[in-house]
């Protein structure tokens, strides 16, 4: 493997990590708000609070990791994406800022307010929608580079079927991932009422999630034929993704082994996400920027990789401790501590 490929793989792992943990968080916000509106909140409120409270900050770091890391490994992305994304990027920051701080205000600070939980629910869907714009743009055709002036073509972005398809895919995936994780968490907490409700949500969002995945796959063929053909070349990866989806949904439907079901959901998105990413290579921004011409110097690459390995050695035991105390500790999950 070249340094370029190692670099993008590391970053892609973090983006995948963010995709999973943030989806759980975003979806939880939405469900929490939705159940409040329908007076079912008492059923799942506890579950959501107990899981989210200790981990929300960690979720955010996954994202920070990605965007700081990408500038380290691929400094030219700062130039292209930085110039083009001023407005969508700023909007995403504002939404993230509102969400993070109001979550803390509501949870640790004052009483529960309707407004806070609305913010929390709404941003849960808007953030994934705005963040996925970056993936859409990377397909090419939305950015113009004229004699050193990088521009985002808003008309093209808002008028394209593909970009809306991706937005919807992101939202339904968030809801599906979140519901299937929370189903598992509720089953660990032995909270039958919450389990029933969340299981229903998971099954509701399963079909839209896979359906949108397939639709977007075919929309891509019109948007970026080269990427589409690369994806067809590794069709088996997406086949695997589909099989995992089927296995997960089957288990949830049969009320069996929710933990394994969630692992299948993770595999479903892992394969699809890495398949998508691998087929996108070597481009970071089609057709302007590849991982080879945007790469940092070799010394920096090596030191980043060394720092990354050292960092992992430190993080993995700490993450393990966090999970042991809050995710796998039966007493905590059941609310006895």
């Amino acid at each position: 493997m070249t340094y370029e490929v190692i670099g993008i793989t590391v970053l892609w792992f973090f983006l995948y990590g963010y995709l999973i943990v943030a989806s759980v968080d975003f979806g939880a916000g939405f469900f929490s708000y939705y159940t409040k509106r329908t007076n079912k909140n008492h059923m799942i409120h506890k579950i959501i609070q107990r899981y989210l409270s200790p981990v929300w900050e960690v979720t955010n770091v996954f994202l920070v990791f990605f965007f700081i890391g990408i500038v380290g490994f691929f400094p030219s992305t700062a130039y292209y994406y930085g110039t083009a994304l001023l407005i969508p990027g700023s909007v995403a920051i504002v939404l993230l800022a509102l969400r993070g701080s109001y979550y803390a205000f509501a949870t640790y600070g004052a009483e529960d307010s309707k407004f806070y939980s609305f913010l929390y629910g709404a941003t849960g869907l808007l953030i994934p929608a705005s963040l996925t714009t970056v993936l859409t743009i990377s397909e090419g055709g939305y950015i113009l580079n004229e004699n050193g002036n990088v521009q985002l073509l808003y008309g093209e972005l808002f008028g394209s079927l593909y970009s809306w398809g991706v937005v919807i895919l992101a939202i339904v995936s968030v809801l599906f991932i979140s519901a299937s994780f929370l189903t598992y968490y509720a089953s660990r907490a032995k909270d039958a009422k919450a389990l029933e409700l969340l299981r229903k949500y998971a099954l509701t969002w399963a079909i839209p999630a896979i359906g949108m995945g397939i639709i977007v796959f075919f929309l891509l063929s019109q948007r970026n034929a080269e990427h589409f053909h690369n994806m067809l070349d590794i069709w088996w990866v997406f086949g695997l993704s589909f099989v995992s989806f089927a296995a997960a949904t089957f288990l949830i439907w049969k009320r069996k082994n929710y933990g394994l079901a969630f692992v299948f959901v993770m595999i479903q998105y892992f394969t699809a996400f890495f398949g998508y990413g691998a087929a996108h290579l070597p481009y970071l921004l089609y057709p302007y920027l590849t991982i080879y011409d945007g790469f940092t110097n070799e010394t920096m690459a090596i030191s980043l990789i060394v720092a990354f390995i050292a960092g992992l050695l430190m993080l993995i035991p700490s993450l393990y401790l966090l999970m042991k105390l809050f995710l796998f500790d039966a007493d905590y999950v059941e609310g006895k501590r």
Binding site: V71, F73, F74, P75, S76, Y79, M300, S303, L304
Partner: peptide, 10 residues
């Protein structure tokens, strides 16, 4: 950031 990424990314 493009210039700095090369030097202070670490």
């Amino acid at each position: 950031m493009q210039a700095a990424g090369h030097t202070i990314g670490l």
